[in-house]
């Protein structure tokens, strides 16, 4: 089995690497630097790390101030606070003036685990996707995260980077190059296509393997950029396979599933089912237990693929 690394770990490691080469980078955190891994950057570059205390609204607007001076800022907290509590600061102080701030939030989704629903953001993609001009990136593994962080450090627009707490398998090939707005076909197929993001990509790969054993040929497409979405790839794969599943660790309303549904409804209506948290709050539990409970693991995905194929 491939080595498991959390996307937040790759984030901290990459920031620390960039600290040396990118003197324009400033990193902010709201008392969670050990968890978000911005502490890795703080260790090597204390002069450009700013501890903000437990004050996320101020953090995001301070990031806007630093960006006003031309700095590129990463500001981090858990997704529920960075995007939930500070939503309006992200919208008005960062996105509206088009400042180069990356809101890099960790602990997104239900795999936060035992902390329970208060800390499990399942609305963040939806919120960020609805802000005009916002780029929304959800990397699938450590390799993709590292590339996304490097690219966003040079990006001249506001962005949201969604990261997870849980260690995930490496799914992207070594020679893969992350590009904003580009999806990646991990496995081609003919019977159905699974569009996935974040840790659901590893589940989608497993589900496709399970289905292959039963003679079902499911494609797996990683869509790391929810906005702007790779509409060309979404349309072409949907047309080719004729049945679509979306998979995300997020509310089924407003996230990747909604983004794909919007594109397909307007361009090539296709039988489709969305896999995600079914518009309910999460709860405490071990990540794997929660994934099973809310129908987010490979088993549940495979079952949904079979179901959607019957609608063709």
């Amino acid at each position: 089995m491939a080595e498991k690394i959390a996307t937040r770990d790759a984030y901290g490691k990459t920031l620390a690497e960039l600290a040396v080469s990118d003197k324009n980078l400033v990193v902010l955190d709201a008392d969670l630097s050990k968890s978000t891994k911005t502490g890795d950057f703080a260790k090597v570059c204390p002069e450009r790390f700013v501890e903000m205390g437990i004050a996320e609204q101020n953090m995001v607007a301070v990031a806007a101030g630093l960006a006003t001076l031309g700095k590129h800022v990463f500001c981090s907290s858990f997704a529920i606070f960075a995007v939930g509590r500070a939503f309006e600061q992200v919208r008005n102080a960062v996105a509206y003036p088009q400042l180069p701030v990356t809101v890099a939030a960790t602990h997104a989704g239900i795999t936060v685990g035992e902390d329970g629903a208060t800390h499990q953001a399942i609305e963040d993609i939806s919120l960020m996707r609805s802000v005009p001009g916002m780029t929304v990136v959800v990397p699938a593994d450590a390799h993709e995260t590292a590339q996304a962080v490097r690219l966003l450090a040079e990006y001249d627009k506001p962005a949201y980077l969604r990261l997870g707490r849980l260690a995930v398998e490496s799914v992207m090939p070594e020679d893969y190059q992350f590009q904003i707005g580009k999806g990646f076909v991990l496995r081609d197929g003919a019977d159905a296509v699974i569009f996935a993001c974040g840790l659901m990509v590893q589940e989608a790969v497993k589900a496709a393997e399970m289905l292959a054993a039963e003679g079902i040929d499911a494609a797996v497409v990683n869509l790391p950029t929810i906005k702007p979405l790779d509409t060309e790839l979404v349309i072409s794969m949907a047309k080719k396979c004729g049945a679509v599943i979306t998979a995300e660790e997020h509310n089924i309303n407003g996230g990747l599933g909604s983004a794909v549904a919007e594109v397909l409804a307007e361009n090539c209506p296709t039988p489709m089912l969305r896999v995600g948290v079914a518009d309910v709050f999460g709860q405490s539990g071990k990540p794997a237990e929660l994934m099973a409970e809310y129908g987010l693991n490979a088993d549940a995905l495979a079952a949904k693929v079979k179901e959607v194929i019957t609608r063709k």
Binding site: V26, E47, R48, V50, Q57, N58, V60, A61, V62, A63, A64, G65, L66, A67, T68, L69, K71, E88, Q89, N92, A93, Y96, P97
Partner: peptide
Amino acid sequence: VDVSTGSLGQGISVAAGIAKGLKID
């Protein structure tokens, strides 16, 4: 106009961020 404002309470944070950035530099 260096900073977009209108939503109360945010401007002072942005100003503080600019001040902090000037200190860093």
